[in-house]
């Protein structure tokens, strides 16, 4: 547990909490971008350079911007309606989340498998990653490509305005 890791983790968690707690939807989206960037920095901290940069490119550059766009298109940017649910449901939700966190934390602290002494960091160059994607993981890569294309077309069709005679 190094100091940079702790700082980055704190930034990420604060961003995530802000994304879930703030009132304004645009503020939530911006806090989400902070959380995503924090996770990207955590990847960099863990030595996964390519992943950290891909995380920044995809999540901060694309998904956060997409969310911001949808917030503005649905006029959520200036909504003043109370964002949180009434107390009982909110209470249940937080209880469930807290319970799941407790279980996970219990599992982490009581697992013997992950208390093995630290392994040396794996040396993964970009070349190796590319070779793995193109050789042993070629089929999943194709499937992902197909799925992204399908998602792209699907998203466009779903979001497209329905033709209503007079246009």
């Amino acid at each position: 547990m190094s100091a940079p890791f702790i700082i980055l983790a704190a930034v990420t968690l604060v961003g995530a909490c802000a994304a879930m707690l703030l009132r304004g939807l645009v503020h939530c989206a911006l806090a989400l971008a902070v959380a995503f960037a924090g996770i990207g920095a955590l990847y960099l901290n863990l030595g996964a350079q390519f992943l950290g940069l891909a995380q920044l490119l995809v999540y901060v550059g694309a998904i956060a911007v997409l969310i911001v766009f949808v917030v503005l298109l649905t006029r959520g940017g200036d909504s003043d309606s109370p964002p949180l649910s009434p107390a009982p449901r909110q209470f249940t939700g937080i209880l469930v989340a807290g319970a799941i966190f407790a279980i996970l934390a219990w599992a982490i602290f009581h697992s013997f498998a992950i208390h093995t002494p630290g392994m040396p960091a794996p040396q993964a160059t970009i070349r190796q990653l590319g070779a793995a994607l193109m050789e042993s993981y070629a089929l999943p890569l194709e499937v992902i490509g197909l799925m992204l294309t399908a998602a792209l077309i699907g998203a466009v069709i779903v979001a497209m305005k329905e033709k209503q005679g007079t246009q």
Binding site: A16, M20, V70, R89, I94, A97, G98
Partner: peptide
């Protein structure tokens, strides 16, 4: 797991579909 719990809590309690 903290991140997961935060996300889960948000998904369960927020009313806006985007959130």
């Amino acid at each position: 797991s903290m991140l997961f719990a935060v996300g889960l809590a948000g998904a369960l309690t927020r009313r806006n579909a985007i959130l």
